Computed example of a mutant assay.
Amino acid sequence: MTTDDTTAGGATLDPRRLARERRRASAARFWRRYRSHRAGVAGLAVLAFLALVALTAPLTIGAEVSDVTTAPGSPMEAPSGRFWLGTDRFGRDLFGLVVWGSRVSLLVGLLAAALSVVIGALVGITAGHFGGAYSTVIMRITDWFLVMPALVLAIALATVLSRSLGTVVLAIGIVTWPTTARLVRAQTLAVESRPYIERAKALGGGHLHIMTRHVLPNVMPLVLAQTTLLISSSILTEATLAFLGLGDPTVVSWGSLLQDAREAGAVSSGKWWYVVPPGIGIAVVALAFTLCGRGVESVLNPRLGVSR
């Protein structure tokens, strides 16, 4: 018998196997509860479909759809059997552009939300754990970011830095982390007040051990729920920056399509097919992520109730 094994009732148990089984049971319990939230399941189904469409776009649409030199149609053609959503001002197929643009919009939303959550979780956990002068200073900085208009700050950053997808992700991540930091800090303070934290400290657990082995697992459900909600706002912010001409001009996204439509005068000339499809795409994705976030919240916080 190894030192990693324990004996209970004459049976030898592997702690790692027990941990895996507990995680598997916890995931199964989470999914059972999540399935009872109809809106959350609907949002997840929509996201799964859109993710499949975005991932298979290189095979179904092809990168040449964004090339203005090989545009197959005339500028701003109305929807037809050949072009389901019409064409843009360069004669490119808008259906292919909307599908291809979903890749950039979803990617930027996911990366920006991940960056925001990482920064917010790091700030929140350290502020709640260490407290004192460090917590006071870092939370005053957080308050400063909270009172600043997020969109204005993102526009300022996108204007100063080079125009690229990395800049957009960085700008969105920097301006959206304070809410996560506040929530995680409050949860960290609640976790740190529990008796097993004092016991871990008495047994010699250091700061890193306490934060990573005890605090982080307890705040992860909150971080997960916050991530799903942040993705929708990140996609909306990316679309806004691209619409204002602050996105990467070399890539196609839903926001850049709206910018092209504005510059081409599609709204004033009644070319609705140029504006409506990317706008609907942004709205549907934002709504789907919001529904998923609400579903996760209802599972993690039963007091919110479950929609049936």
Rank of each mutant, 00 (worst) to 15 (best):
G62C: 12
I235M: 14
G295C: 09
V275Y: 03
M211E: 02
D67C: 12
F30A: 08
V123W: 09
T60V: 15
V191H: 02
V191G: 05
A42K: 03
G109W: 09
G101S: 10
A54I: 06
A171M: 07
H129M: 00
I235N: 02
G96E: 04
L257M: 11
P178K: 08
G265I: 05
A45T: 01
D67K: 14
F95Q: 06
G128N: 04
V53Q: 05
D4V: 12
G120W: 12
T228S: 15
S66K: 14
G101T: 06
A27Q: 13
S102Y: 00
D4Y: 11
A158S: 14
G293L: 07
L183E: 09
V137C: 02
A45N: 03
R23T: 14
T3A: 15
R103P: 00
G91F: 13
F49E: 05
L97T: 01
A264C: 10
I119M: 12
S80T: 00
V65E: 08
S105C: 06
R32D: 14
G206C: 03
A225V: 09
V68R: 14
D5L: 15
R82L: 09
Y196G: 10
F95A: 04
R35D: 09
V98M: 05
L52D: 00
L165H: 06
R199C: 12
Y134L: 13
L258D: 07
A112L: 09
A48Y: 05
E192Y: 05
A51I: 10
L216C: 11
F145W: 12
Y274V: 11
T12A: 13
L146Y: 13
F30H: 03
N301H: 02
G173T: 02
S193W: 04
G91E: 12
V99M: 07
L304M: 06
E64D: 15
L246V: 12
